[in-house]
């Protein structure tokens, strides 16, 4: 289709404006991070002597090494287990279609719109009574449960579109359901599973509410929770806070830029799917 010149130019202008609107806040954050620690710089103002050392200070003050390790452990605790559980359940609901599947599915759907704040109070007492408060398990276990509605929904949508002939053929070869699942269906579901993995990684890494309620020690929290603690402690020192925020942002940004294609399509599908 031929695009009108004028139309193309307005399009470009809008795009650039949209990008500027997105990026400028980060630039402001960056420039502010270079001002002397403890000062109140104004808006976008390049400092006379950029203090690159602020990043090193923030790295130390935020215990970035510990935080990265902690978030990684939490992600490793949440994501693989969630994927396995959700894939199995999605397989059962979408492909095995056992009796009573509508009720089960409906129970999961019930959780799709649940705001986490709705159950944070009982979760606190539940986790406390399990003796898990202030451990990473306090974030990991509830998150697995909380991710189930979406994850099962997502995997069911994959399996329900799968033709049955496939399984029928494999079954004739004498494979039992367990083998069938792992040898045939999981490999076939790889794209759906990997997109789900990306989404779950992101939501775990950025989880805030559970982290601040269930874990006091920032070194055992998720990145977002740790950033909350960093603000709670250093919020009064604007340049240091900006430097720390950028450092804490960096890992997700880097992962995002590396896997950006998958990310964008996963996020878009994540919204539309279902």
């Amino acid at each position: 289709m031929i695009v009108g010149k004028r139309e193309a130019w307005t399009g470009r202008v809008f795009l650039v404006l949209l990008m500027a609107f997105t990026i400028v806040p980060f630039i402001s954050l960056f420039v502010t991070a270079l001002h002397p620690s403890g000062s109140y710089p104004s808006g976008l103002e390049w400092p006379s002597e950029p203090r690159w050392g602020n990043f090193a200070d923030a790295f130390r003050a935020a215990h970035m090494g510990d935080l990265l390790w902690s978030s990684t452990l939490i992600v490793l605790g949440v994501v693989p287990v969630s994927l396995v559980l959700a894939t199995m359940a999605g397989f059962a609901l979408g492909h095995l279609r056992m009796a009573g599947r509508h009720l089960v599915f409906l129970m999961f759907v019930l959780g799709l719109t649940l705001p986490f704040e709705g159950i944070i109070t009982p979760l606190y007492y539940l986790v406390r009574d399990m003796g898990l408060l202030n451990t990473r398990w306090a974030i990991i276990l509830p998150l697995i449960g909380l991710f189930m509605p979406f994850a099962v929904y997502w995997m069911r949508a994959h399996f329900i579109n799968l033709p049955d002939d496939l399984s029928e053929a494999a079954q004739l070869d004498g494979a039992n359901v367990w083998q069938l699942f792992w040898r045939v269906h999981v490999p076939l579901a790889a794209p759906a599973i990997s997109s789900l993995a990306i989404l779950l990684f992101l939501w775990t890494w950025n989880q805030f509410l559970l982290a601040i309620v269930l874990v006091d020690d920032p070194a055992k929290r998720t990145m977002a929770g740790a950033l909350g603690a960093f603000q709670g402690q250093w919020g009064t020192d604007i340049p240091l806070l900006c430097a720390g925020s950028l450092l804490i942002l960096a890992p997700t940004l880097i992962v995002f830029l590396i896997f950006q294609r998958r990310f964008v399509s996963a996020l878009l599908q994540g919204s539309v799917k279902g």
Partner: peptide, 20 residues
Amino acid sequence: IREDQFAVITQNAPRVLADD
């Protein structure tokens, strides 16, 4: 040692004293 701003301590006090 854990540190927070006073407003945060105020919010956390009952919870921290009871459970941590």
